[in-house]
Each structure stands twice: as C-alpha cells, then as structure tokens.
Simulated scan of single mutants.
Amino acid sequence: MASIARRPDGTYRPRYRDATGKEHARHFKRKVDAQRWLDEVTASIVTGQYVDPAAGKITFRSFFDDWSQRQVWAAGTVTHMNLVARSVTFADVPLKAVRGSHVEAWVKAMHTDGLAPLTIANRFTAVRTIFRAAVRDRRITSDPTADVSRPPKKPSSREQHIEVPTLEDVSKLLAVTDPRMRAYVGVCAFGGLRLGEASAVRVDAIDFLKRTLRVERQVQYKPGFGAEVKDPKHGSKREVFIADELAEMLARHIAEHGTSAEGWLFYNGAGRPLPPSTVDSWWQRTVKAAGVAGLHIHGLRHFYASGLIAAGCDVVTVQRALGHARPSLTLDVYSHLWPTAEDRTRKASAAMLRDVLARSADSLRTEVVS
C-alpha cells in the first residue's frame, strides 16, 4: 500500500508499508520528487532488492559480531577475521554510512603503517566478504568496496624481499642451539616444515628406510584454549623426501633425547608437543646467541625453498615439498624455478646439510685449537 498526501504546509508526504506492515514515509517540496522516491521503493520491492532504511543503522562492528557467530570457520580464519574487523577505521560507522572513501582511507593507513602488500590485500578481501554478507542480509543495498580497486598482492620488484638466512647463519644456529632443539632446526631448514608442523612431528611419521617424513598435523594456538594439535592447513599434508644426513640427525635426536609417551619428538614436561610460545622463546634466545637477531624462524623454510630452487627444482616439486595448495602460491613467494625430480630434491637438501655441518665442525675445531 502506497500513497502521497499533501500536507498543510504545502509539502508532499509519500508513504508505504513494507512486508512486515511497518510504515515508512518522507517529505518532499515537490510532488514529482515524492513520486520518484515512491516509484524507486516500489521497484525495489517488486524486484526483491528492497532494504529497510533502518537495517543499515547497525554499525560495521555490531554486524560483524553477529554475522561471524554464524560462520563455520577454522580457528585460523576466526583469528584472522577478528583481527581484520578490529583493524578497520570505520568499525563504529553505521553500515549504510560507510563509503568507498572510508575503505580507501583504511587501505592507505595500512600502507602508511608499513603492512606488506599481501597482508593489505588479504584484509581488504576479508572486509569485502563482510560487506557482501551485509548486502545478502538486506542490511545495505550495495557494497562500498565495489568501486575501490583491490590492492595488489605482490609488492614491486624494489619492495619484494624474502628473508633467507645464509649457510653461515644456519651453521651458527645449529652450533649454539639447545641440543634438544638441533633436530628442530634441521626439519625446518632441511625439510621446509613450518613452526607448527615441526612441533607436531611424531616418530611414526618418519620412515628411516625410505628417508621420508610425513607432515600430517600441526600445533596451533587457539585463543582461550591454548595449543592444540590439528590437521595442517589445507593442502599441506605431504611426504617430504629427506636427506640421509637429516635422517641421521633425527635418529640421533631420538637416541639421545627420546620421545614422549605419545611419540612426539619435541615435547614439554607434560609430554605434549611444544606450544608456539615455547618455541618462540627458544628461538629468540637462539638467534641472539648466534648473532642473527631479527631472523624469523620462517626464514629456515625460505632457506630450504631457495636451496631447492637454486639446485634446479621445478615449481611443482617445490610446491609439493613446501605443502603449498597450488603452484601459484609458490610462485607468489619464489621466482625462478627449473625442472627437477624427487632424487634431486633430496640431493639438494643433502648438499646444504653437508655444507652446514662441515662449517659447524670447522668452527668447533677452531675454538678447541684456540
């Protein structure tokens, strides 16, 4: 039901009722403007595009808090989305009042703060997902990010930088680290495991005869629950072809330090896998002692990848060794790749490990002589 009434003051008052029976009205000086508004509303109702004007009064923050509770997300996605929602500069702005300029200012602020292009692009995508959900939920008529250019994921050639430790750096790390964590450095630097994957290595995942290491799980921090063991990120389950020297390092670790009752190689006093906080504390002490403070443990994974690439491994080989879901992800991080096979992957890792061990032995002999 819709109508237009002329008021005593000469203005026109169009009104209509929505599907719930709620009445809506506005005032215009000209009847033609009142009729245009009423026609637009009627058309949106007929086409199923109608949005209650009051629905968009909810703030971005409030909508996200409500909407996110209904989503089925992995723990990592929950953490990421909550971080993104807290980072926007328009969290307390009503949804219907958010403009493309708000989004552009937020993107510019992240760039000014020095965030990596990939981080900015991922956060932008997350916010676009939230606004599109608001459109589907009939909270707003359009997505304010639609007219904003998506930030590039890749930095320019001048900005792009991958933190890759040198052979000397890895040699120093092996020399100064806690003996119980030497094999931890090994599986990261010569097996390409992520921190959480290395923490979740069990003895039954190692095939010493075939010289393989199965990556089947990871340790991840879950807010409010602490560390938990779960499946690795999508596409990351894999079998790593390890060098003879790494297999020997792991065997020596088991012989000298044992495993937990459940078979974990790296565990705490309770027999559980090392939580990320414990690993981070150990790592900070280790890089400081090695004189490479500031090096992130993920740099060991880059060290492994760069060694494979330098030895001529093709993109698919490196992708599988690192547990990337798609070759494109590998190419996003690493550039020049050449054809290879499994034996060359193992050979490349062996060559790196032998060189590092030789440097470590030379360093120890020099210290003894002096």
Rank of each mutant, 00 (worst) to 15 (best):
residue 285 R to K: 12
residue 224 G to H: 09
residue 229 V to F: 06
residue 296 H to C: 07
residue 281 S to N: 11
residue 236 S to M: 05
residue 298 H to M: 10
residue 243 A to N: 04
residue 206 I to K: 03
residue 225 F to P: 07
residue 288 K to P: 00
residue 200 A to M: 07
residue 257 H to P: 00
residue 268 N to C: 03
residue 208 F to W: 14
residue 205 A to D: 15
residue 289 A to P: 00
residue 300 L to F: 07
residue 203 V to E: 15
residue 266 F to V: 06
residue 263 G to P: 04
residue 206 I to V: 13
residue 203 V to T: 13
residue 243 A to P: 11
residue 209 L to E: 15
residue 239 E to Y: 05
residue 258 G to Q: 14
residue 282 W to E: 15
residue 226 G to R: 03
residue 216 E to N: 10
residue 254 I to Q: 06
residue 302 H to M: 09
residue 275 P to L: 02
residue 236 S to R: 15
residue 247 A to H: 00
residue 302 H to L: 04
residue 301 R to I: 02
residue 290 A to W: 00
residue 275 P to C: 06
residue 233 K to G: 01
residue 242 I to S: 00
residue 206 I to A: 00
residue 210 K to D: 13
residue 301 R to Y: 05
residue 238 R to M: 05
residue 256 E to S: 12
residue 209 L to H: 13
residue 211 R to N: 01
residue 277 S to I: 08
residue 280 D to V: 10
residue 255 A to T: 15
residue 235 G to M: 03
residue 207 D to I: 07
residue 297 I to L: 10
residue 279 V to I: 13
residue 259 T to S: 09
residue 234 H to E: 11
residue 270 A to V: 08
residue 230 K to E: 13
residue 301 R to E: 01
residue 291 G to C: 05
residue 290 A to R: 02
residue 235 G to F: 04
residue 274 L to Q: 02
residue 301 R to P: 03
residue 292 V to D: 03
residue 211 R to M: 10
residue 200 A to S: 11
residue 293 A to D: 12
residue 255 A to M: 14
residue 254 I to Y: 09
residue 248 E to A: 10
residue 227 A to W: 07
residue 291 G to M: 06
residue 207 D to N: 15
residue 291 G to H: 15
residue 261 A to L: 11
residue 209 L to W: 14
residue 213 L to C: 04
residue 206 I to N: 06
residue 263 G to A: 01
residue 243 A to W: 08
